[in-house]
Design a protein around this nucleic acid. Structure first.
Lengths: 169, 169
DNA sequence: ATTTTATGTCAGCCTTGTTGACTTTCCAAG
DNA sequence: CTTGGAAAGTCAACAAGGCTGACATAAAAT
C-alpha cells in the first residue's frame, strides 16, 4: 500500500494514515467543533440570534465595508439566506449598510458600535477557548493543527482563508 | 498580559497566543469544517439523507448494539430529533433495532448490510480527504492537530471521545 | 438602448433542531 | 403485588436556517 514518501522516517511514521487513525481524526473534528461553537452559542441565545448571525458579524468585522456578494462567497450560502440574517442585524442596529460610492449598486457592510460590542463579546468567548486549547497543546501542536486544517479545506475556501489570513497580520 | 508559563522558550514562543493568531485558528476551523463535511454531504444528497443520518450511522457502526440513550448522549440532540432520523433509517432497512435481552426497554441498534454499505461509502469519502490532509501535513502536524482538537472539546465530550478512541485501537 | 450585475424581497419547501404532553413497557423497590 | 420511575416511542407545534424560483429595481457595462 502506497509508500507515502513525504515522511522523514520509515514504517512507523505512516501509522497516522491507518483507517483507525483517520477515524479518530474524524471524531475529533466532530467533538471539537461542538466545543468550538459552544461558548458563542450560549451568548447568542441570550441575544436571540443564531450562528448565522455570528458568522455574518465575524466576517463583516474582519473586512469592514465588504459587499454582500463578497460575504456570500465567503459564507457559502444563498443571498436569500444571508439576506434574512442581514436584515435583522440591520433592523436591530448592529450592522450598517452603505450604498457604494463608486458603484451605487453595491452595499458596503459595517458593524455599528452596538454590533462591534456584540462581535467582541462573541469573539472573546471563542478566543478564550481557543487560547486555552493552544496553551495546553503548545506552539508546535498549534502549527500542526493549522497545517492539517488548511489541507482539509476545499481549494476555493483555502483561497478565501489565505486572503483573510494575509490581510490580518 | 499574562505570562503563559507552559511554553519552553520565552517571548517568541507566545506569538501563537496573540488575538490575531487565535482568530486565524477560528477561521481555519470554520473553513476546514466545511471541507470536512463536503464529501459525505454530496453522497448523502444522492441518497436523500442528511448529516444527521450520517452521524447516527457513524456511531452505530462504531459501537454496534449501542442503545438509543447512549447515542443520544454522544450526539447531543433530543430523543425526538434522533428518533425521526432513526425511524427513517429503520424503515429504509439501514438500521436494525433489537429489543434488549436483559432490559427489554432498551433498543440495541445495529447497521444492516445495506446500512453498512452506505456507512462505508460515507466514511471512505471522509477518510479520503482526511488522508490527503494528513499526508500533506505529516505525522508531527497530525499529532498537533489532534492535541489541539482534544483540548478544544467540552470535558464531557472529551470523555466520550476518549472512550471511543480507546475502544478502537 | 439593451444587457448584465448587484441587491433585495416574496413565497414556499426541507432538514434538523427545540418543547411539551402523553403512552407503553418493564425493572425494581416497597 | 402494587407502584414509582426509567427507557423508549409518538404526536403536535414551532423555529432557525438552509434551499429554489420568480420577480423588482437600480446602476453599470456594452
Amino acid at each position: 500500500m502506497a509508500e507515502g514518501g513525504a515522511g522523514p522516517g520509515g514504517g512507523e511514521s505512516l501509522l497516522f494514515l491507518t483507517d483507525d487513525q483517520l477515524r479518530k481524526g474524524i471524531e475529533a473534528m466532530f467533538f471539537a467543533y461542538r466545543g468550538f461553537t459552544a461558548d458563542p452559542d450560549r451568548i447568542l441565545e441570550r441575544h436571540e440570534y443564531g450562528r448565522a448571525h455570528h458568522r455574518a458579524m465575524h466576517f463583516i468585522h474582519r473586512s469592514p465595508g465588504t459587499t454582500v456578494n463578497n460575504l456570500l462567497s465567503i459564507l457559502g450560502v444563498t443571498k436569500q439566506s444571508l439576506n434574512r440574517v442581514l436584515r435583522t442585524l440591520i433592523d436591530d442596529g448592529l450592522v450598517e449598510s452603505r450604498v457604494g460610492r463608486k458603484d451605487k449598486r453595491e452595499r458596503h457592510l459595517f458593524l455599528t458600535e452596538k454590533g462591534t460590542a456584540l462581535e467582541r463579546e462573541l469573539s472573546e468567548a471563542q478566543r478564550g477557548r481557543m487560547r486555552s486549547a493552544y496553551r495546553a497543546a503548545g506552539p508546535q501542536a498549534v502549527a500542526g493543527f493549522r497545517q492539517v486544517l488548511e489541507a482539509m479545506m476545499e481549494p476555493e475556501m483555502r483561497r478565501q482563508y489565505q486572503t483573510l489570513k494575509d490581510a490580518g497580520a
